[in-house]
Structure formats: structure tokens, C-alpha cells
């Protein structure tokens, strides 16, 4: 099994400036009864996009955003907090996002995103503020050089856990790495039996 490779991405941004956007917002729990990881893009941020009768909300920033051209989500701090549901990155990726930029991204979400070809990018407050203030800006994210560049040439660098980065660059599933450690796992089990 392999993952989609990720090396560099240039795209427009969609901005959700709210702080503490939890995974219940990204995908409400009532959509978690699925047994598949596919097709969740249609319910991503469902209650932000649709009213209680299922009609699109005029006020939603998702209106008029083409997922094919807006593949970078810029969000307020502590993005992805709360529930560990991996349905959140599944839904974001299925909608069309390939990267999330914030000043602060929650641990479990970050770990889940990296396993699904969605790049979590944590940037400094100044870059974050600039990105929040410029919805639709064209941004380039380069995973090789670990850099984020805005169209005016300004930018910054970011960090990604080295192993997850290698897996994304090579399109490799981390389970293979774990399966290769089976002799060590067996030895551990014998020593601790």
C-alpha cells in the first residue's frame, strides 16, 4: 500500500480565522457511523456550510471556493483539537485540501493528517497573521525545503517530523516500517514474557 506523494504545492488559500476549531466542527459526530474512509468531503464542516434543514448557508466561506484551486486551509490557532477521529483529515482531503496552515495544530490531528497526505504546517505568529488577513492568496508549500512562500516573495520555514516527511516525500505507508521491525518486536515480547 502506498500514500499519495507530496513534495510541493502551489495553491490559493481558504481562511477560517476562528481559534480552537475542533474535529467536531470539521466533521460532526453524526457522520462517524460510516465504515469507509471515502466520500466524506461532502460532509466536511457540514454545520458551517448548511443550515438545520440542509440548505447551503449564504454566509459560509465555503461558498464560491473551488476545492480544485483552494487546496490550502489557513486556520486559527489550536486547529484540530478535541476528538481523535481520523475522519477529520479524511474529510478535508476528500474535499480537496492538501495542507493546513496555523500557528498551532493539535497533536493527534497532526499525526492523523500526516498519515493521509494532508500536510500540517505550523508557522510563526507574524506569518500566520498575514495569511489570515489574505484569503485567496497564492501560497507555495515546499516539503523538500520545508518552506512556505507567499506570492510577494515573503515566507518562512516550518518543521515536520522527519519520518512522516520521508513517508510523504516517498509516498510510503509507515505500516511497512513497523512490519520491518517484527524481529525486534518478537525479541521484546520474549524478554518481557
Amino acid at each position: 500500500m502506498s500514500l499519495d506523494k507530496f513534495s510541493a504545492l502551489t495553491s490559493r488559500t481558504m481562511v477560517l480565522p476562528q481559534e480552537n476549531i475542533d474535529t467536531d466542527q470539521i466533521i460532526p459526530a453524526r457522520f462517524l457511523t460510516t465504515t469507509s474512509r471515502k466520500g466524506l468531503g461532502k460532509v466536511v464542516f457540514y454545520d458551517w456550510r448548511y443550515d438545520e434543514d440542509g440548505r447551503p448557508k449564504n454566509s459560509s466561506v465555503f461558498n464560491g471556493v473551488d476545492p480544485q484551486t483552494h487546496r490550502i486551509l489557513v486556520a486559527g490557532s489550536n486547529f484540530g483539537c478535541g476528538s481523535s477521529r481520523e475522519h477529520a483529515p479524511w474529510a478535508l482531503v476528500d474535499f480537496g485540501f492538501r495542507a493546513v496552515i496555523s500557528s498551532d495544530i493539535a497533536d493527534i490531528f497532526k499525526s492523523n493528517a500526516l498519515k493521509n497526505g494532508l500536510l500540517p504546517v505550523t508557522v510563526d505568529e507574524k506569518t500566520h497573521a498575514k495569511l489570515l488577513a489574505s484569503p485567496g492568496a497564492e501560497v507555495t508549500i515546499d516539503l523538500e525545503t520545508l518552506s512556505v512562500t507567499l506570492s510577494d516573495g515573503s515566507g518562512t520555514t516550518f518543521e515536520v517530523e522527519a519520518f512522516a516527511r520521508r513517508c510523504l516525500l516517498d509516498g510510503v505507508d509507515p505500516l511497512g516500517h513497523l512490519l520491518n521491525q517484527l524481529p525486534a518486536i518478537e525479541a521484546y515480547e520474549r524478554a518481557h514474557a
Binding site: E86, S111, N112, K115, L178, Q181, L182, I185
Partner: peptide
Amino acid sequence: FGIGTTEVGHALATQCVLQRKP
């Protein structure tokens, strides 16, 4: 600690997870 579904698969298949020390 809580894990995502991909890691649930890792734990099912290998009884291990990949984790950096926090």
C-alpha cells in the same frame, strides 16, 4: 493515549505504534 484509525491498524497488526517521546 488516544490514537487515530491508521494507528489502530498499526497496533492491531504489530502491537506497536510509532511515537516520539513527548
